[in-house]
Design a protein around this nucleic acid. Structure first.
Length: 490
RNA sequence: GCACCGGUGGCGAAGUGGUUAACGCGCUGGUCUGCAAAACCAGUAUUCAUGGGUUCAAAUCCCAUUCGGUGCUCCA
């Protein structure tokens, strides 16, 4: 099954497959590590995760590179305010970023490329551009890309810049540029700023050059897919194309994927509007990492997603349904044999699931057949028509579902515990409820559940209900079934 | 201002010319249960922002209106 993915460059759904057979080589823009990641960042990384997981599920090996921008204006500014170097400033946020990715179960790209570790490659690329007549140095020692040297500029974002007059938006600090739209490749050193002493002078890289240099380093001069948030389309990706293609005379990437911004409560997220959330904020409000993952994944990447707390609750409950079902199918005592109906239902769900994802990663559509299967199987289980031979077929379909969604197994305690530990270490307030929930060990719960079962046998329902209520207060829910008692953490 | 995207049940969200408008959450009633929970069953949009048009046929195409969002500048 071949994935048909919207290609920003062509404006249509194009099949995505490795140009040279073998690995699919992709580059996805990563974070600028000047602060903790917010849910908008993570929507993009999660959607790219969906993409790479689906590729792997369909048998396409992936060579995925993500950059870490660990030098830029904001980082320099923030570090300066604290009176420390950028090398002292960024590690905390790099670590936090990867911890958050782990919490959200985002797979690690095969390669992580840090801007500050590839300065030399960037310098070489700028020299190459200079040789091609596309880069020039200004009096202060900065280097710029000459936009006029790349007539195709704007082909990705479909912008026609020919009609835009120079001077309309000239930045007064940049009067030395040949043209107002020429963009920086290298910024001359300023007093007190981090800089590198290089063949093209002392300074630091412009933002766009790192991606051109590092994608070339890890993926070659032309590769299969380049992805990122929609905001990066212009100017960032447009500039990457200009730099790379001018230097190599080859298409940078055949396929471009852009993830739409999310809204929070119907508005663009911003700190001043008070609707700005990091992953940690949500975990500390008691939401599960899996629910955040589910909520951010369930709306297809090309659609605006309106993030709300109701949406997180919905995701939480949907996951509960799936997990409850998964456990039921796994553990139920079943009559021997195979039922034609269930075999077919599992196969149909699987086929529809794959078809939905292959159609431009339609995650919303992909969920539907899985829930259809859950209902059909629950019904069969209730009627004792679900047979032992059906278990494998249904679990196989769930496994394919989870290969992309990755929410079935309850691993939510870890991220929440980490968030709590981080908040306490950081001197932040932690809700008491969150702490009490962590108060009971599995063994203690098992003991209480056993006592309740015993009480029930003795028809001491008062004691049984008392135990159930006590556990409920601590976020533990009990469910009696014909296959025994099970409990789960809310 | 210019450009783009979208308005589908209480909420989220599929579906982009043709069976009873997926799926999830929620809500109501029922079955099951000592009571719950889970699960299942039934109900919950005669209708897809509004008005007009094209067509044998439109949520799906066209026009207008309206509302919301985004981009044009750092931003995932």
């Amino acid at each position: 099954m071949t994935l048909r993915l919207f290609n920003t460059l062509t404006g249509q759904l194009d099949e995505l497959s490795p140009a040279n057979g073998g690995e699919l080589r992709m580059y996805a823009c990563g974070p600028t590590v000047y602060d903790y990641g917010h849910i908008g960042n993570f929507r993009t990384f999660l959607q790219v995760d969906v993409l790479r997981r689906f590729l792997k599920l369909t048998g396409v090996p992936v060579r995925h590179v993500m950059n870490i921008t660990d030098v830029d204006d904001k980082i320099i500014r923030n570090a300066a305010e604290l009176g420390i170097s950028i090398g002292e400033y960024t590690p905390k946020f790099v670590d936090a970023f990867f911890e958050d990715l782990d919490s959200l179960r985002v797979e690690r790209p095969e390669f992580i490329a840090r801007a500050t570790e590839h300065i030399e490659k960037m310098v070489q690329l700028i020299q190459r551009l200079e040789a091609a007549g596309a880069a020039y140095k200004t009096e202060d020692g900065s280097w710029y890309f000459r936009l006029k040297s790349f007539p195709e500029y704007g082909k990705l974002s479909k912008k026609d810049l020919t009609g835009i007059e120079d001077g309309a938006r000239v930045d007064v600090d940049e009067y030395e540029k040949d043209s107002a739209r020429d963009f920086a490749l290298w910024k001359a050193v300023k007093p007190g700023e981090t800089s590198w002493d290089t063949a093209i002078g002392r300074g630091r890289p412009g933002w766009h050059i790192e991606c051109s240099a590092m994608s070339m380093e890890f993926l070659g001069e032309s590769f299969d897919l380049h992805a990122g948030g929609e905001d990066l389309m212009f100017p960032h990706h447009e500039n990457e194309i200009a730099q790379s293609e001018t230097a190599t005379k080859k298409p940078l990437a055949r396929h471009w994927m852009h993830v739409r911004f999310l809204l929070v409560d119907g508005k663009k997220m911003s700190k001043s509007d008070g609707n700005y959330y990091t992953l940690r904020d949500l975990l500390l409000k008691g939401y599960k990492a899996s629910a955040v993952r589910m909520a951010l994944i369930s709306v297809p990447y090309r659609h605006q997603l309106n993030f709300t707390f109701d949406g997180l609750t919905e995701a939480t409950n949907a996951i509960d349904r799936l997990r409850t079902f998964h456990e039921r199918v796994t553990k139920a005592a079943l009559p021997t044999g195979e039922s034609e109906a269930m075999q077919q239902a599992a196969a149909k769900a699987r086929a529809e699931y794959f078809a939905a994802l292959a159609n431009d990663l339609n995650t919303a559509d992909a969920r539907a057949p899985i829930f259809d299967l859950v209902r059909a199987a629950n019904t069969a289980l209730d009627k004792n028509e679900f047979l032992a031979g059906d278990r494998e077929a249904v679990l196989a379909t769930l496994k394919d579902f989870d290969a992309v969604f990755d929410v079935l197994e309850d691993r939510d305690a870890g991220p929440t515990e980490r968030a709590v530990a981080w908040a306490q270490a950081d001197g932040r307030e932690v809700a008491a409820e969150l702490l009490t929930r962590q108060g009971l060990s599995d063994g203690e719960i098992d003991a209480l559940v056993a006592e309740r079962t015993q009480s029930k046998k003795q028809r001491n329902f008062a004691r049984a209900d008392q135990i159930r209520n006590e556990l409920a207060e601590k976020g533990i829910l009990i469910e009696d079934s014909k296959d025994g008692v099970r409990w789960k953490r809310k």
